[in-house]
Amino acid sequence: MDNLPYLALAAAPERIDPMQLFLDADLVVQAVIIGLVLASIWVWMIIVSFSLRIGRLRSRTVHFEEDFWDTEDFDNFVKEKRRKDLPAARVANAGMAEWRRSTANKPVDREGTRQRIASAMESQVAAEADELAERLNFLATVGSVAPFVGLFGTVWGIMNSFFSIGLQESSSLAVVAPGISEALFATAIGLFAAIPAVIAYNRFSHKVNRLEARMQRFADRLHASLSRQLEVAG
């Protein structure tokens, strides 16, 4: 009989087993953990896909702008290089489309044409930035909500642990420790999902802002070039 404590100590696990914690958890806690794991997987899919996408966009935007400013006829370049998949190209197309409409009839209202071209390109820049940032909303949601979802699982598990104390009429740590460990595991998974989401959201928001600023500078430069052409035509 004296050897029983030592046998129990020897049988105790030497480290935390996440899978065993999940299997031993309450159904509600298991549902919380599954939801958080799925959210974490989706977060990492967004991180990988958005990283590749923003990298490609930046590289292709640089090449497009170099080719665009090397041409002498912006209108023909835009017509020949209709790049539906490139934000900078759509901004250029919006400006040139408004240019064609505004200069089709004579006499040309130069000030009105300038304002309409600027408005068309600014609207397109904003639309492109919104489209790029659309998927980042999920990262923001997970980053802000996941810790509270994990905390809900933890609270539920601790409630079950205290309920076990009442049933067994014992406040021994051995009675409540397993339930509390399973409950705290939910909070750990919530943080595991939230931390990468917050970091990625901040990083990607910065990159989207930089790309938006680059498109705006491109639009401003195109607007200045078209304004000079209006002066010459006038």
Rank of each mutant, 00 (worst) to 15 (best):
Met1Gly: 14
Asp2Thr: 01
Asp2Gly: 11
Pro5Trp: 11
Pro5Tyr: 07
Pro5Lys: 08
Tyr6Ala: 13
Leu9Lys: 14
Leu9Thr: 11
Leu9Ala: 15
Leu9Tyr: 08
Ala10Ile: 11
Ala11Thr: 11
Ala12Phe: 05
Ala12Gly: 09
Pro13His: 12
Gln20Trp: 08
Leu23Tyr: 09
Ala25Trp: 02
Asp26Trp: 00
Leu27Cys: 04
Leu27Asp: 07
Val32Leu: 04
Ile33Val: 15
Val37Ala: 11
Val37Cys: 02
Val37Lys: 00
Leu38Thr: 05
Ser40Phe: 06
Ile41Cys: 01
Trp42Lys: 02
Val43Glu: 03
Ile46Ser: 10
Val48Tyr: 10
Ser49Ala: 06
Leu52Glu: 03
Arg53Lys: 10
Arg53Ser: 12
Ile54Gln: 03
Ile54Asn: 07
Arg56Glu: 13
Arg58Phe: 02
Ser59Phe: 07
Arg60Gly: 00
Thr61Leu: 08
Val62Thr: 11
Glu66Gln: 10
Phe68Asn: 02
Phe68Trp: 10
Phe68Asp: 08
Asp70Phe: 04
Phe74Lys: 08
Val78Asp: 03
Val78Ile: 04
Lys81Gly: 08
Lys81Met: 10
Arg82Val: 00
Arg83Gly: 00
Lys84Val: 13
Ala89Glu: 11
Ala89Met: 07
Ala89Cys: 10
Arg90Pro: 14
Ala92Met: 00
Ala97Gly: 07
Glu98Gly: 01
Trp99His: 01
Arg101Pro: 01
Arg101Met: 13
Thr103Tyr: 00
Thr103Cys: 09
Lys106Val: 02
Pro107His: 07
Asp109Pro: 05
Asp109Arg: 02
Glu111Ile: 04
Gly112Glu: 10
Gly112Phe: 09
Thr113Arg: 07
Ile117Cys: 01
Ser119Cys: 03
Met121Ser: 04
Glu122Tyr: 12
Ser123Glu: 09
Ser123Met: 05
Val125Phe: 14
Asp130Gly: 13
Glu131Leu: 15
Leu136Phe: 12
Asn137Phe: 09
Asn137Thr: 15
Asn137Ile: 15
Leu139Ser: 06
Ala140Phe: 12
Pro147Thr: 01
Pro147Lys: 04
Pro147Phe: 06
Phe148Gly: 00
Val149Trp: 01
Gly150Val: 03
Phe152Ala: 02
Thr154Val: 06
Trp156Val: 05
Gly157Val: 00
Gly157Glu: 11
Met159Val: 05
Asn160Cys: 04
Ser161Cys: 12
Phe162Gly: 13
Gly166Phe: 04
Leu167Thr: 13
Gln168Leu: 15
Glu169Tyr: 00
Ser170Cys: 09
Ser171Cys: 00
Ser171Tyr: 03
Leu173Asp: 03
Ala174Ile: 03
Ala174Gln: 13
Ala177Asp: 07
Ala177Asn: 11
Gly179Tyr: 05
Gly179Asn: 05
Ile180Arg: 01
Leu184Ala: 04
Ile189His: 05
Ile189Trp: 03
Gly190Ser: 03
Phe192Met: 14
Ala194Met: 08
Ala197Ile: 05
Val198Asp: 09
Ile199Met: 12
Tyr201Gly: 05
Arg203His: 08
Ser205Gly: 10
Lys207Ile: 11
Lys207Tyr: 12
Leu211Lys: 13
Arg214Ile: 01
Phe218Lys: 07
Ala219Ile: 09
Ala219Tyr: 08
Ala219Thr: 10
Asp220Glu: 12
Asp220Lys: 10
Arg221Leu: 05
Ala224His: 08
Leu226Arg: 14
Leu226Ser: 10
Leu226Pro: 13
Leu226Phe: 05
Arg228Trp: 11
Arg228Met: 15
Gln229Lys: 15
Glu231Asn: 07
Glu231Arg: 13
Gly234Met: 11
